[in-house]
């Protein structure tokens, strides 16, 4: 799941200041689960903005801002607005901007990470989408996303009492990997030196795409 957090209301107010009619759009999937961008949050943002802004707001939401069939029903409302304030993740904001090339589409959220809900209002990062999964070697715990230094060959010297050197509130991924492999009786996996990895599958290779030609026979 994509996790996001609402921007400070003043920052949102500053970004929408010059627009008189604003369409505020919530997103009903990932960011609803992280309690940052759903229908309720869209109304909350409208209420808070009304305290600091004279603009007129319409509030709506769609199931997913990242799919065209859901955006279609916004076309009319968007045409009447000066700008759109999107409570989707960065994907939704950009997809709306593509669909409405003549309308400013502004983000109300900061997209933070791919992670899970561990408690109400408590979410943690699990995956960085690096494009080359090694979870089979690390007991199902990701060192790329969850080790502060993305180490592949065990913990650094700063791991203490199961916590990372950056904070007592951050678990050491390698402690978790160690415990899990021990339980699975696979500690021998830790002896292997994992060589420098190919980061081309990650952001470092440039913007990525999945191009399944097998599913797109019309493309030569």
């Amino acid at each position: 799941m994509i996790v996001a957090e609402r921007k400070p209301i003043q920052e949102i107010a500053d970004s929408v200041r010059k627009y008189e009619k604003l369409l505020i759009v919530g997103c009903g999937t990932c960011v609803t689960v992280s309690l940052s961008g759903g229908e309720n949050e869209a109304f909350t943002v409208a209420n808070l903005l009304s305290l600091v802004s004279d603009a007129k707001f319409d509030v709506t939401y769609v199931e997913r801002q990242c799919e065209p069939e859901f955006l279609e029903k916004l076309d009319e409302a968007v045409s009447k607005a000066d700008a759109v304030l999107s409570l989707a993740c960065g994907v939704g904001v950009q997809f709306m901007a593509e669909r409405y090339p003549d309308k400013p589409v502004l983000p109300a959220l900061n997209t933070t990470f791919m992670g899970v809900n561990r408690d109400v209002g408590y979410l943690t990062e699990m995956c960085q989408g690096c494009g080359n999964c090694i979870l089979e070697k690390t007991g199902g715990v990701c060192p790329v996303a969850r080790c502060s230094k993305s180490h592949f060959n065990g913990p650094c010297g700063g791991s203490q009492n199961g916590k990372c050197e950056i904070s007592n509130e951050t678990d050491c991924a390698w402690q978790l990997i160690y415990e899990r492999l021990k339980r699975l009786d696979q500690l021998d996996r830790l002896c292997e030196i994992i060589p420098p990895r190919d980061w081309r599958t990650s952001r470092d290779g440039g913007p990525r795409k999945v191009d399944r030609r097998d599913l797109r026979p019309e493309v030569e």
Binding site: S159, N161, Y178
Partner: peptide, 19 residues
């Protein structure tokens, strides 16, 4: 290279040294 005999998990430090 370095080793920290006092870091956790303790068992792993020998392994890291070996690596």
């Amino acid at each position: 290279a370095t080793v920290n005999p006092f870091a956790d998990p303790e068992d792993i430090q020998i392994l890291r040294l070996q690596k």
